[in-house]
Design a protein around this nucleic acid. Structure first.
Length: 574
DNA sequence: GCCGTTTTCGGCCCGACTGTTTTCAGTCG
């Protein structure tokens, strides 16, 4: 089950969406949206708060607190259920299609009776949308493309949600009588950016109590397969979970087998065959007499194949087995290598928490340094001004020494305009300790224009890091098109770091581009892009993505001591 | 619906882009 705060946040967001779809006051809807984000990002637990306590959360007033309290008490929100009765769930789904908002979704539903994405796709393809006022053939084409983008990521869970689900299930299975070990495997263990299902592996002599633990969970909506070695369920959130139970002595071989990837396993089995062995989920055996060679631990299985243990993030058959054989596996960066975070926000722009709270939370994470990088004025919705930024700098300087030995850097997240220019003239930029620069709009420019744009940003002596370089949103938006090889070369030449943005919705750069960029000698920054205290932990997903790209600690500038990092930042402006 | 060094009403996230229109509505970040 998702964290209670997230559940409530999702309900408030749904309420806001339904208000918009029913033509309710947009400001009212925005209030609920704001409350939804605020509640989800709230550091404390909602459970146990009364209506008065709830109102201490920013953006939560009397009315919203009442709805949350109602949910905590009864598990329902009457007002929400009333709106749900009016609007089919498919209409809200339609609203989630890029280029479709509440107005178009409501219009299409009202005029054509369309209430599912499939019906909309049909209506778009048969030209029925063109008859509606304000909609034309181009709109229909955009809707069809939008649905395709959405579908390409459909049915997949993002890394943070999948890991949380896996942890909850593994804990329940582990508590079952006779369970000796339990852990997640599959693409989730390889830390892919999104996963289609969640694989859980457990070790026990008797599987029945473990299977019962899974099927009996409140989050289990439906049992798809129920056998002695494998049980598959669908959760209330629609995710398929497979639980496999193996004898404890087979644990290592099963872990290798169920972690995959398929291509990695095929290569391992081929290697086994050549050595007169047979590898399966039950162990590594002598092909002749069937004698068991190895199976208890992963290390044992890999060793018997003449290989060192290979980190799961690398098991994609992208050369890791060859590298392992040659003794050239990279020593991958670990979360504990990170000394700081170089891209974070506060409530001065679109963050949720005030500066002091973010600093305190960052200090609690043990950071040696921490950069505050709120948005700059070109993102006009954030209403940044020179004066506000300078006041924040003063505020930050006054915090120096109040958070142990953590050093504070004053930075900003600049906006890379369509021509590659950024907010503020050089003289103002020179006042920052660090500048991240990111693309936030004009995603549709052609390849040449996007490349020129990124190259110009790299050439800017005050731009130290390119933030979320590809600008993708997983399952919702493909990134921009650019000549990436040219961008990597420019980053390497100019000493500009590329960000590995740890937000589970971005993971940008992605693993394959990281691997390509590092061949140019590019440096990277693994950042949380935190907009709330709870997001500071996003570094975990950034590290996982960096590991998939094969990064070592030395290639990541925020693993460096502050003096080396500062030298890197200074070198840019020379 | 929320909020307050313009404080109990009247603002609130502004500006650009897209696609449909000839002056604008809807969407997005």
């Amino acid at each position: 089950m998702a964290r209670l705060n997230d559940q409530v946040g999702a309900l408030l967001q749904e309420y806001a969406d339904l208000l918009l779809l029913t033509g309710g006051d947009a400001y009212r809807a925005r209030s609920y949206e704001k409350a939804a984000r605020s509640v989800a990002g709230h550091a404390g637990d909602l459970d146990g708060l009364d209506a008065k306590g709830l109102q201490t959360i920013p953006g939560v007033g009397k009315s919203t607190a009442g709805k949350i309290a109602e949910y905590l008490g009864t598990g329902r929100i009457q007002a929400l259920e009333a709106l749900r009765a009016d609007i089919p769930p498919g209409v809200r789904e339609i609203m989630g299609i890029p280029t479709v908002g509440p107005k178009k979704a409501a219009l299409i539903h009202r005029e054509l009776g369309v209430s599912t994405v499939d019906e909309l796709l049909d209506a778009a393809r048969t030209g029925r949308l063109d008859d509606l006022p304000g909609l034309g053939a181009r709109t229909a084409g955009n809707i069809v493309r939008g649905i395709q983008v959405l579908r390409s990521g459909a049915g997949r869970s993002l890394l943070d949600a999948a890991l949380a689900l896996a942890a909850e299930i593994a804990a329940a299975v582990r508590a079952a009588p006779g369970c000796e070990r339990c852990a997640h495997a599959g693409s989730l263990r390889r830390m892919r950016e999104s996963v289609g299902d969640v694989d859980i592996l457990a070790a026990a002599h008797d599987s029945a109590p473990l299977m019962a633990a899974l099927t009996g969970l409140p989050l289990t909506a439906e049992v798809l397969v129920g056998g002695p070695t494998k049980t598959s369920v669908r959760t209330t959130t629609g995710v398929q979970v497979d639980l496999r139970v193996v004898p404890p002595e087979d644990w290592g071989a099963a872990m290798v087998y169920f972690t995959g990837s398929k291509a990695h396993n095929i290569k391992l089995r081929g290697r086994a065959v050549k050595a007169g062995l047979k590898l399966s989920e039950y162990g590594l055996f002598d092909a002749g007499d069937g004698r068991r060679i190895a199976s208890r631990t992963e290390e044992e299985v890999y060793a018997a194949l003449g290989l060192p243990w290979i980190p799961p993030e690398l098991r994609e058959d992208r050369g890791e087995i060859e590298a392992a054989l040659a003794g050239g596996l990279p020593v991958l960066v670990e979360e504990s290598d990170l000394r700081g975070d170089l891209h974070t926000h506060t409530d001065l722009t679109d963050g949720l928490a005030p500066l002091e709270e973010m600093l305190a939370a960052a200090h609690a994470r043990g950071h040696a340094y921490y950069a505050v990088t709120d948005h700059a004025p070109d993102l006009s919705m954030q209403r940044m001004t020179d004066a506000k930024m300078l006041a924040q700098r003063e505020q930050l300087r006054s915090q120096a020494g109040r958070h142990g030995r953590m050093r504070l850097l004053h930075g900003t997240e600049l906006n890379i305009g369509p021509d590659g220019g950024v907010d503020w003239p050089a003289a103002f930029l020179a006042g920052f300790d660090i500048c991240v620069a990111s693309i936030h709009s004009h995603f549709g420019l052609d390849r040449d224009a996007q490349t020129r744009r990124l190259l110009r940003a790299c050439e800017n002596p005050y731009v130290h890091v390119i933030g979320h370089p590809a600008t993708r949103l997983l399952g919702r938006r493909d990134g921009i098109d650019a000549d990436w090889e040219a961008v990597y070369a420019a980053c390497a030449r100019t000493g500009t770091a590329l960000e590995v943005n740890g937000s589970p919705e971005r993971l940008d750069l992605g693993d394959e581009r990281i691997a390509a960029a590092r061949r140019h000698g590019v440096r990277f920054a693994i950042d949380s892009d935190a907009h709330a205290v709870g997001h500071l932990g996003n570094l975990r997903y950034g590290v996982a993505t960096a590991r998939r790209g094969g990064l070592t600690a030395d290639e990541v500038v925020n693993t460096w001591p502050l003096t080396r990092l500062r030298a890197f930042l200074r070198a840019k402006a020379r």
